[in-house]
Design a protein around this nucleic acid. Structure first.
Length: 271
DNA sequence: CACAAGACCTGGCAGC
DNA sequence: TGCTGCCAGGTCTTGT
């Protein structure tokens, strides 16, 4: 489950191998993804050259000569480049066959992911058109968050996970960013003052950039594009550390459920 | 409009 | 060992 850093890591790893490659065909072994894979997709992409692999939010955008192929990894998705004779594993649902003899395999046990061809510019696709700014872009800052939070009574953690507000902040990095910013995850978003949002915007950027540097924090079923097992992050400071000492002050980390999602915070460092 | 809750899936794990 | 229930990184839809 990739949050933004994992998706960006996959993009960086895959882009050099995919760029300028010709697609011989698309093999669909399981059409029932989050959105059923359209029956015209195979014909749409066959024979096309890959121009680039970009990322928007948690979507990967495979830019083709005509249109684009959108990929989303959902909670359990992963991508691998394999050689021709690599046997299928269970849940290898879709495979892009390339002219250089390699295959890009989309693997997703829970099938919350997505593979969709769109004829127009990817950004115009309904899945992408309503998204908020990229967290690492300059337009995303404390003033922006503060302005968008006016009148909001939802918990600030839920607020920053809303993809219309800012993209790419998932459940793990939301907890991590709030800890770094010293903000209690359950505080109403509209009741946090400008300086708090300055710290939060900075923290989100720091946490995501750090995770990208590490190659993406990964949980057990993420596999890097080269097939090496992803490493479980030892860098998480609160997520999954209920009752363990806060790495800043030693106070036991508390678990909390917010909007049905597991959350973790330090009751001493976060107010 | 903002918000909460449920739905979509499978696999792994703890507990009995 | 085998069952049962609960949990998991993300959206999308429905209902208030």
């Amino acid at each position: 489950m990739p949050e933004l850093p994992e998706v960006e890591t996959a993009r960086r790893g895959l882009a050099p191998a995919l760029r300028a490659q010709r697609i011989l065909g698309l093999v669909v072994r399981e059409r029932r993804l989050r959105v059923p894979l359209d029956a015209t997709t195979e014909d749409a992409v066959a024979g096309q050259r890959i121009l680039n692999l970009r990322r928007r939010a948690k979507y990967l955008i495979l830019e083709l000569e005509r249109g684009a192929l959108l990929l989303h990894l959902g909670m359990s998705g992963s991508l691998r480049l394999v050689t021709e004779d690599t046997p299928y594993r269970p849940h290898d649902h879709v495979e892009l066959v390339l002219a250089n003899g390699l295959k890009l395999r989309f693997h997703d046990p829970r099938r919350f992911g997505l593979v969709q061809w769109t004829p127009g510019p990817a950004e115009a696709h309904p899945s992408l058109s309503g998204l908020g700014p990229e967290p690492l872009a300059a337009v995303f800052d404390g003033a922006y968050l503060h302005r968008r939070a006016q009148g909001r009574r939802a918990a600030v953690k839920t607020f920053i996970m809303d993809q219309r507000i800012v993209v790419g902040v998932g459940n793990i990095y939301a907890s991590e960013s709030l800890h770094l910013a010293g903000i209690h995850p359950a505080r109403a978003a509209g009741c946090i003052a400008a300086p708090g949002y300055e710290r939060l915007a900075t923290s989100i950027k720091t946490v995501l950039e750090h995770a990208i540097e590490q190659g993406g924090t990964t949980l057990r079923d993420f596999v890097r594009e080269d097939g090496a097992p992803g490493y479980f992050s030892r860098a998480l400071r609160v997520y999954g550390r209920a009752d363990a000492p806060c790495l800043t002050c030693g106070t036991p980390i508390q678990p909390l459920r917010l909007g049905q999602r597991a959350s973790f915070f330090c009751p001493h460092c976060q107010r």
